[in-house]
Design a protein around this nucleic acid. Structure first.
Length: 434
RNA sequence: GUCCGGAUAGUGUAGAGGCCUAUCAUGAAGCCCUGUCGAGGCUUCGACCCGGGUUCGAAUCCCGGUCCGGGCGCCA
C-alpha cells in the first residue's frame, strides 16, 4: 500500500476541504506557542502543516512537539486554502505517524541555512541530497539521461550493455584497475570502445551504451573521477562528421529538454539555462595552435597534446561549445582513422565546453591490416587484441562513434564547481566510501 | 605524483604568543509566545586533527604525520 495520496507538489488551494495523506521528512518545526507549524518535505517540495493549539487534540500536538528534525512522518489531514500560508494552502492534520525517527544532531543542515563543505556533504550524501539544491542537480541529471536516450532512439540506435570486467587493456595509455577473477587477473574496463566496434561487425548498425568506465589514473582535479559514466555510441556506414552531427543534436536536445522539463530545479539552482547555439564551431587542431599563439601561449608544438592552460585559453577565446577536429594521428588512439591524403592527421575530434573536454570521437579504422599496423605503431601488441581484430576480418563496415562524459555534461550545463557535485557517490583517488 | 593553501562544538565560522574559562551563527535541551515562512526573546549544552619541539606561557611559532581543498601533471 502506498503510504501517501499526494506529493506536496500536487496540492494547491483549489483542493480546499479535501482529505490528503502526505509522507516525507520533518523539515522544520516552528512552535509559536498558541500555533505550531510543521513543514513536511518530500521529493516534490514542502507542505506546511498548521496546528492551532486550542483546536488541536493534545496528543497530536504533543507528538509534533516531540518530533526530531528529519524524522520520517506521515500526515493525514485536510487541505485548507489560506492566503497567509506558503503557496496559499496549509494542511490541518487529523493524524500524524512517525515512520522513522531521526537522531540528533544531524550530520549537516538539510535546510541549507548553514553551509557544509563538499567533503562533509559527500560523507553524508543521503542527507546532502535532502537539500533541494543537491536534489535538483540529480533530477536534472535524470532528465539529461532521458533526453540522451530519446535522441538515440530517434536516430535508430539500439541500447546495449557490454562487459565491465575484461581480460586486457582496451587501448593502452590509461592505467587499469586490476581485479581478481577466480584464478586469473582481470581488469575493470576503461571504455566500451572495442565492444561497440565489434557490434558494428555484428551488424547492429547503430548502438549506444550508457554505463560506467574505470580509470586508475591518479589524477586529482575537479573534473576527473576514477569511475565515470560514459555515454557511448557507435554508428556504421557513417563518418566522423555524421557522428558529430548526432553529438551536437544530442547536446542541444538535452539542454532543451532540461529547460522545458526542469523549470523548478533550475529555479532552485538560480539558473537561467541557455541552449547552445548551433552549428557548433569546428576548429582544427592546427587552427587551435594558431589561436593559442595569438593569445600569447606559444609553447605548444604541433603534435603535443593540448595542455590545460591552452585548453582554457581556447575556451575563453571561443566562448561556447566547439569541436576540436583533425588531431595529429600520433596522439589519438590506434582505432582513429587517419586522412587518406595526410596520414599524420586523423578524423578524430573532441567536443569542448569552454571549461573542459566533454567528448571525444572519430571515424574508426575498419580495415584489419591498417588496424594491426596502427596498433603496432603505438607500441601495443596485436596479439592482445585478437578477440577484437577477429571481428574486423569477416566484413567490418566503415563506422564512427564517440564517448561523452555524463558528469561533465551536467557539471558544465549547471556551472558546477566540481564534478563531484554531479555524481551521487563519486569515486576519486581517495574516496571509496560511501 | 608535485606545488600551494588549510584543519577550531553536529554544521559553517572568528582567532596573528598572555585579551581564550575560545567568537558568532546554526543546532540541541528548557522556558515565553496565535500566522511563522532564515520566526522572535531568555537560559543552558557543545570544539582547538595527531605526535614531538620552542617558550615562563601555544588554537596561534617550528618539525613530522594524517586528512581536506586548489593548481599542474597524468588522463579515448
Amino acid at each position: 500500500m502506498i503510504l501517501r495520496t499526494h506529493y506536496s507538489g500536487d496540492i494547491h488551494p483549489e483542493l480546499d476541504g479535501q482529505e490528503v495523506t502526505l509522507a516525507g521528512w520533518a523539515h522544520e518545526i516552528r512552535d509559536l506557542g498558541g500555533i505550531c507549524f510543521l513543514v513536511l518535505r518530500d521529493r516534490e517540495g514542502l507542505a506546511q502543516v498548521t496546528m492551532v493549539a486550542k483546536r488541536t487534540e493534545k496528543p497530536l500536538l504533543e507528538s509534533v512537539r516531540q518530533l526530531s528534525r528529519e524524522s520520517v512522518i506521515r500526515v493525514v489531514g485536510s487541505v485548507k486554502a489560506e492566503p497567509k500560508a506558503p503557496r496559499g494552502y496549509e494542511i490541518i492534520p487529523i493524524s500524524l505517524e512517525v515512520l522513522g525517527r531521526a537522531d540528533s544532531p544531524l550530520p549537516l543542515d538539510p535546510t541549507g541555512k548553514v553551509d557544509a563543505e563538499l567533503d562533509t556533504r559527500l560523507d553524508s550524501r543521503f542527507m546532502d541530497i535532502r537539500r533541494p539544491g543537491s536534489l535538483a542537480v540529480f533530477r536534472i541529471e535524470s532528465a539529461v539521461l532521458q533526453s540522451l536516450r530519446q535522441t538515440f532512439y530517434d536516430h535508430g540506435f539500439l541500447e546495449v550493455i557490454t562487459p565491465k570486467i575484461v581480460a586486457t587493456a582496451t587501448e593502452g595509455g590509461t592505467a587499469l584497475f586490476p581485479i581478481s577473477y577466480f584464478e586469473r587477473e582481470a581488469f575493470l574496463n576503461q571504455s566500451p570502445q572495442l565492444y561497440k566496434q565489434m557490434l558494428m561487425s555484428a551488424g547492429m548498425d547503430r548502438v549506444f551504451e550508457i554505463g560506467p568506465i574505470f580509470r586508475a589514473e591518479e589524477h586529482d582535479t575537479r573534473r576527473h573521477l576514477n569511475e565515470a559514466i560514459s555515454v557511448d555510441m557507435e554508428m556504421s556506414f557513417a563518418d566522423h562528421n555524421d557522428v558529430m552531427d548526432v553529438l551536437e543534436r544530442a547536446m542541444v536536445e538535452a539542454y532543451r529538454f532540461v529547460q522545458e522539463n526542469c523549470k523548478r530545479d533550475l529555479d532552485v539552482l538560480h539558473l537561467d539555462l541557455v541552449v547552445p547555439k548551433t552549428p557548433f564551431r569546428k576548429v582544427t587542431y592546427s587552427e587551435a595552435l594558431d589561436l593559442a599563439k595569438e593569445a600569447g601561449k606559444p609553447t605548444m608544438e604541433w603534435g603535443d597534446d593540448i595542455d590545460t592552460e591552452t585548453e582554457r585559453a581556447l575556451g575563453s577565446i571561443i566562448g561556447e561549445h566547439y569541436f576540436l577536429t583533425d588531431w595529429p594521428s600520433s596522439i589519438k588512439p590506434y582505432y582513429s582513422q587517419p586522412y587518406e591524403d595526410r596520414p599524420d592527421v586523423s578524423k578524430a575530434f573532441d567536443l569542448m565546453h569552454p571549461s573542459m573536454e566533454l567528448a571525444s570521437g572519430a571515424q574508426r579504422v575498419h580495415d584489419p591490416e591498417q588496424l594491426v599496423s596502427r596498433i603496432k605503431d603505438q607500441g601495443l601488441d596485436p596479439d592482445g587484441f585478437e578477440f577484437y581484430l577477429k571481428a574486423f576480418r569477416y566484413g567490418m563496415p566503415p563506422h564512427a562513434g564517440w564517448g561523452l562524459g555524463l558528469g561533465r555534461v551536467v557539471t558544465t550545463m549547471l556551472g558546477l564547481e566540481n564534478i563531484r557535485d554531479a555524481v551521487i557517490f563519486p569515486r576519486d583517488r581517495r574516496r571509496l566510501v560511501p
